[in-house]
Amino acid sequence: MTTELKIPEYKLAEEESGKWGMVVDTDLCTGCQACVAACAMENNIPYVGEEDAAYGRSMHWIRTERFWEGEYPEVRMTDYQPMLCQQCGHAPCEPVCPAFATVHSQSEKLNLQVYNRCVGTRYCANNCPYQVRSFNWRDYQDPRLRPEITILANQFNPDVTVRRRGVMEKCTFCIQRIHKAQDLAKSEGREVEDGEFTTACAQACPANAITFGRIDHPETLVSQLAHSSRGVHHLEELGTLPRVTYLKGG
């Protein structure tokens, strides 16, 4: 039995508002890396080991970037800058995927990574201006191949897929938490409230530098912060329409 299907109306990326957004206050960030650790715990991100890390195959969905100004010994550190997938409204990673494994979610307005579609061409990582994608060069999570992670395997998050070799992955804005909050709200017959849930990195941040929420609702904390005069979008000139706003120079 087939029903009449309405094809959703096509919209330019610039006309879309985005749904979930994040604000990172680099003036508050102390570079403690709690977000990096929390993200790895929440999203089953493997540690790759010494040898692969030396090949530059470390896997993180969020990292703390730091920059220098001046020549040694007159070195001045700039702010720490947590860098994660910017969930671009007009994402450079999406059109280059030959398998449609990285697609734009119509309902959540996020960049999805569909692990079971990914064939591991790594085009998306090459085309990502923020360099936030990481590739599974080996079966890092398989206790049969890496006996040393057997104990770590006991703390896998059951809500997140354990990725296998040859699959690209990246920050999902903790979509499992989004779904959980939406499911709870729906079971109670209400909308998801602002601040009801947050991403793992924002939850772990001791300085409250990371704020997460709906950016299409003007009254939420995250959209008010995002529209402050201190807001900066990274590599905005590329037209990627990032959904992460950085606050600096306060």
Binding site: L5, K6, P8, V103, S105, Q106, S107, E108, L110, L112, V114, Y115, N116, V160, T161, T172, I175, Q176, H179
Partner: peptide, 16 residues
């Protein structure tokens, strides 16, 4: 229902 259709056929509804 267009909104329902988008939600129910979105990759991210089941795969993440």
């Amino acid at each position: 229902d267009e909104e329902k259709f988008i939600k129910l056929t979105d990759c991210g509804t089941c795969h993440y």
